[in-house]
Amino acid sequence: MTEISAGQVKALREKTGAGMMDCKRALGETAGDMEAAVDWLRKKGLSAAAKKAGRVAADGLIGMAVDGMRAAVVEVNAETDFVARNDAFKAFVTTVAGLALDVEGNIDALAALPYPGTDRSVAEQLTHLIATIGENMALRRAAFVRVDQGLVATYMHSASAEGLGRIGVLIGIETTADPTVVADLGRKLAMHVAAAVPTAVSRAEVDPKSVERERDILIEQARISGKPEAIIEKMVEGRLGKFYEEVCLLEQVYVVDGESKVKKVIDAAAKEAGVPITVSRFVRFALGEGIQKKQEDFAAAVAGVGGA
C-alpha cells in the first residue's frame, strides 16, 4: 500500500477544502496521485476543487505594459505585501513588464535580458533585490498578446500604481474599427475576464483532456445518484453544456449587465460598428494563483490523524 505523507494530505486539503480524513482516504484510493485524488473527492461530492484550486496564496505584484497593438503581463512574487509596497520592488516589476514586450513573454529569455542601468541581467537584478530587501522573491511567469488590427485591452484589479496590481488581464480585440470605438468594450470585456475567470475563448479552445475529465466525473456523479444508464448520457451532455458556459468566455453571462451572453454583446457591438469584432486571445494573471502559503502547524495536525 502506498504510504501517504502529511505533506500530501496538506496539499490536497488546501487544493480542495475537503476534510483531512477524506483527503487521506482519497490519496490512499488513488495511490498518492494528486489529480486523481481531486477527481475522487469531486465524484464523492466532498470537494469544490474546481472553484478553489486557483485561490490566491502568495504576495508580490502583477505588472503589465502596453505598446500599440501588443502588451505583456508578468508576475513577480514576494513573501509579504510589505515588499509589494516597496518602491524598489515596484520599479523592478514595472521595468520587467516593459522588457517582456521585447521577448514576447518568454520567461527564460526575459530572465536573461540585460537589466537597464546596470551590468546585471534581469535574474541577477532580482537576486540583488533579494539581498537588498532581505525577502525571497521570484519572477514566476510572463505572457504576451498581440493583434494584427484593433487593440489589446487591459484591466488591472486592485491597482497599487499604474500598470501594477493583483489581477491583470490582457485581451486581444481584432477589428478594423477605429480602436477608440471599441476601447470601452475592450476594457469591459477585460473586467469580465477578471471577474468570471474563463479558461478559453470558445469551445474549440478548451483542452480535450479537460472535457473528458469533466465528462468522466459527471458520468460517475450521475451513476451515484442512481439514474438509469439510458438517460445518463443525455444528463451528462446537458451538464457539459453548463461546463462550457462556465469556462468559455463567449458563452458566459456578461458580468456588466448580468443577463446577456458575451458573444451577443460582441455581436451587438460589431453591428453598431459596421465591421466584425472578435476576441483573438486573453490572458488573466491572478497574484499567487496556485501557490500555497506555508502553514507551520498544519503538518503536526495531519500527523496526529491516524499516523499519516
Results as ranks from 00 to 15, higher is better:
1 M>C: 11
2 T>W: 07
8 Q>F: 10
8 Q>N: 01
12 L>V: 03
15 K>P: 02
15 K>R: 14
15 K>M: 14
18 A>K: 06
18 A>G: 05
26 A>M: 09
27 L>D: 02
33 D>Q: 14
38 V>M: 15
40 W>G: 00
47 S>F: 04
47 S>T: 13
48 A>C: 08
49 A>D: 00
55 R>C: 02
55 R>I: 06
57 A>N: 13
66 V>I: 15
67 D>M: 10
67 D>T: 08
72 A>Y: 04
76 V>G: 00
80 T>R: 07
80 T>Y: 07
82 F>E: 00
83 V>R: 08
89 F>R: 06
90 K>D: 00
92 F>E: 07
94 T>P: 01
94 T>H: 12
94 T>D: 02
105 G>D: 03
108 D>W: 03
116 P>T: 11
117 G>L: 06
120 R>A: 14
126 L>I: 14
132 T>P: 00
140 R>P: 03
140 R>Q: 12
150 G>V: 10
152 V>H: 03
152 V>C: 02
153 A>V: 05
153 A>T: 12
153 A>Q: 08
155 Y>R: 05
156 M>S: 02
158 S>L: 13
166 R>M: 01
167 I>G: 00
169 V>A: 00
170 L>E: 01
175 T>H: 11
179 P>L: 09
183 A>Q: 13
183 A>T: 06
185 L>I: 10
188 K>E: 07
189 L>F: 11
191 M>N: 03
191 M>D: 01
193 V>T: 10
198 P>I: 14
199 T>A: 08
202 S>F: 00
202 S>Q: 12
203 R>V: 09
204 A>Y: 01
206 V>Y: 14
210 S>V: 11
218 L>S: 01
220 E>Y: 12
224 I>A: 15
225 S>H: 09
229 E>K: 15
233 E>G: 14
235 M>Q: 10
236 V>L: 12
241 G>V: 04
248 C>A: 13
258 G>H: 11
260 S>M: 05
260 S>W: 03
261 K>N: 05
267 D>S: 10
270 A>F: 09
271 K>E: 12
276 P>G: 08
278 T>V: 11
279 V>M: 10
281 R>M: 02
286 A>Y: 00
287 L>E: 03
288 G>F: 00
290 G>D: 01
292 Q>S: 10
295 Q>C: 03
298 F>P: 00
300 A>M: 08
301 A>C: 00
306 G>W: 08
